[in-house]
Design a protein around this nucleic acid. Structure first.
Lengths: 243, 243
DNA sequence: TCAAAAGTGTTCGATATACACCCATGC
DNA sequence: GCATGGGTGTATATCGAACACTTTTGA
């Protein structure tokens, strides 16, 4: 059957390909969105640091969702991270740069000249300790405004994911709490919205809207060790949000 | 190189697969959304009529977008139909029904036991003459409320596409004119919104909103041959919409 | 006492919702 | 003349946008 498959595949012009997942994992720090990039443990490097989106080929008995969860688990140790499939990238040209082709051959011990990828969006509290698994030389947060040139179409994937995150937040506002620490101030939350929507929000209007969100509850706690008036801390109440 | 690829592929657990596109093409008639289904010219039939979503495997030098355009062109004769990639379906179980596996083998002259698909949403004026290309025995519009059981996960794909069309219309209201005839009445347009959002709209409020859309322009023409007061006809003015 | 950020209300315009009757036409 | 769907206006509630000063705290 293997032989038959391959013979037939050679006769017909349909594509047979490997399929990967790539994850755009956002974190929020210093009033900016950051993307988690990794560097593979391989002599070959694409850009000067060899940074790229974390991803993996899909295993034979796996869905793309499962593969994305696996990639996220390896990085964060979290088993069911919030994640969203947002687009597949299928251009034959996405694997055309000779460096990329060479890198794939080393990384996967296989000649691969067509590779489609299913891109996922995910969100992560940026202070979380990340696993420095041996597979990667480095794992680092990179501000979206300072992304390096990455292999394949990873720059395009990130660009499209930035539009996607806006519509995600619009359809489910609760996802932003995946990006905030457990205790957060109104200003942090506002800056996060500003980073996502790329525009300034009015302070008073934002505070007013906060009070209408009954699932954002004030704690009996304020900021400490700040050189100015300490801000009220809030937390997200999931039960109230769902109820 | 071929041999090397295949040897390596046999050693590693990564999936190698064919990739298809499937198109959910909506049409609007009788106040209902309809989906265009086709029946392959093959002795094997999945449901009693063998109806399924139109689709195709992707060729070697083709993107998924190009493959979807090709499928749409074959059916409608339109070269650049409005279309939107909305989700990839990748479960290994989506090709597990023995009937589906057998059908694939006949249809593509190949044993295929894993097949992922990139699903597209498209919109079509329902009165348009369709090409009855020889590849298909039948091509027919089917109301979304009366879909047959279809092969693979095509029922699930249609179900998810119905949610997708709502967010598409929300983000770009002009797409609804792809579903309406060139000349349409306010009532037709309202019924289309009602079919998409699955709820009744107030007649007066809808008319009021219509007048605020300066890109929907009244014609010097009314309905004819109706057994009641003839309704005003409108057309969509693309230039005003973009300008 | 100063610097730095926190916090607080009102007004206005736009938009969504609710609601009931007369009009034109073909039969 | 009647059945059928076409067409119209007003009042209210809700939401987003604009806008400036006082408060608290640590240095």
């Amino acid at each position: 059957m293997e032989a038959q498959t391959q013979t037939a595949a050679a006769m017909i012009p349909f594509m047979q390909t490997f399929v990967s997942v790539d994850c755009v994992i956002f974190g929020f720090e210093q009033n900016q969105l950051n993307v988690l990039l990794v560097q593979r443990n391989t002599p070959l490097q694409i850009n000067e640091k060899g940074l790229k989106l974390p991803g993996s080929l899909i295993y034979q008995e796996e869905t793309a969702d499962e593969a994305a969860h696996r990639v996220l688990f390896e990085l964060t140790g979290i088993n069911k991270m919030t994640l969203k499939q947002f687009k597949s990238f299928t251009s034959p040209q996405r694997v055309s740069n000779p460096e990329d082709v060479a890198w794939l051959e080393v990384a996967y011990n296989n000649k691969i000249n067509r590779l489609i990828t299913v891109a996922y969006l995910s969100l992560c509290k940026i202070n979380r300790k990340l696993n420095l698994i041996s597979k990667y030389k480095t794992v680092e947060w990179c501000p979206v405004s300072k992304l390096p040139a990455m292999p394949f179409d990873h720059n395009q994937i990130v660009a499209e994911s930035l539009e996607e995150i806006r519509s995600w937040v619009k359809s489910d506002p609760a996802v932003i709490f995946e990006l905030l620490p457990n205790k957060f101030t109104a200003t942090e939350m506002r800056h996060l919205f500003e980073a996502i929507y790329q525009k300034k929000l009015d302070v008073r209007n934002f505070q007013k809207k906060l009070t209408t969100m009954d699932y954002v509850v004030p704690l009996d706690e304020k900021q400490t060790a700040v050189p100015h008036r300490a801000a009220q801390l809030y937390k997200f109440d999931k039960k109230r949000y769902n109820g």
